[in-house]
Amino acid sequence: MSTQRDTTNLLDQLASENTPVRRLWSPTVRLASWLAVQVGFAAVVLSGGVRPDLAAQLASPIYFAEMLLLSAAVLLLARAAVAAAIPGEERWNLGRLGMAAAAIAALFVFTRSPYTDQAINTFVDTGLPCATSTALLALLPTAWLLVAIYRGFALSPRRAGAIAGACGFVFAFALMRLLCPADEPLHLVAWHWVPVALGSAIAATVGARVLGDRQS
């Protein structure tokens, strides 16, 4: 049971512990810095080679629309993630909108070439590198956002972690669409989208643990 006297003692203690603090950058500045780093990162990755039919794909309205949606999803999710670190500034609607854009982009895989019969070995052998690459490409953008949130004060750590993860993994998915020539729906769902879902869930757990512990 606490009393007002305890509160007064607490006030004294907090005031005596007060030291100058470095203010967090505004969400806009942090978003811009994240974006600059990720654009550079994407340029380095893509300079290693893109899918051979990229020019033809970009001429396709469906592929172009898919990439636009993915870009919008990444931007919305990144904005929501950096805002999640500041009490009262949370933009969960942007996060939801970003997830909706990613979900619509996910539906675009079903407009691609039809299912083909593949031996299970071939399916796994071609898919595993894609899933691994998606996870690796998502590491930097996700970790960057989680650290950005960690430096702030997230009131909803799990949600903040999930949005950071979704952002990083959708970013990786978009990069993989520029790298991987496979357009078959089953491949895209199993080896590209499932890692996005798993990555987001893992980031939510990491957020709940790491960001939540920091508050206690």
């Binding site: 967090l24 500041i86 702030g152 004060f153």
Partner: peptide
């Protein structure tokens, strides 16, 4: 709440 304010005071603009 005061403790949270203390921990998160660097986030106020």
């Amino acid at each position: 709440t005061l403790l949270s304010i203390h921990r998160g005071r660097h986030t106020y603009d």
